[in-house]
């Protein structure tokens, strides 16, 4: 009887140790590509990231802290889905922070799309 108990205990300890709980925090950009774009009267709010690390909105450079108010004041149609266009060479950290700020401003879905060179 006791060898059985020993073996079961060893299996038990193995599975307890092997059960790894990865706790990640992060942001999820829900973007439905299937959403019909013709439903929206206004074009989505678009931010562009330049290789130099600037955030461009409608052609003018803005600061990171201006992203959330811009999204908050935007029309509901353009708030529904936001596009972050990243040029090659811009940093993923900045892109993530722009997405984060847009979520803080009430954006429902954010798409990150690469700009062609």
């Amino acid at each position: 009887m006791s060898p059985l108990i020993d073996m079961v205990f060893i299996l038990l300890i193995f599975f307890i140790v092997a059960t790894s709980f990865v706790n990640e925090v992060g942001i999820t950009s829900k973007y439905k590509d299937s959403a019909n774009p013709t439903d929206q009267k206004r074009s989505p709010l678009t931010f562009e990231l330049s290789p130099a690390g600037q955030i461009l909105q409608n052609g003018s450079a803005i600061g990171l802290e201006e992203v959330a108010p811009l999204v908050r004041n935007a029309h509901d149609d353009s708030k529904a889905s936001i596009i972050v266009r990243v040029s090659p060479g811009s940093k993923a950290g900045l892109a993530t922070e722009v997405m984060d700020q847009a979520m803080r401003g009430g954006a429902k879905a954010i798409k990150m799309s690469p700009l062609a060179k």
């Binding site: 811009s90 993923a92 950290g93 993530t96 690469p114």
Partner: peptide
């Protein structure tokens, strides 16, 4: 993602 990785 690393914060210094290429966003594209």
């Amino acid at each position: 993602t690393d914060q210094w990785a290429d966003a594209a």
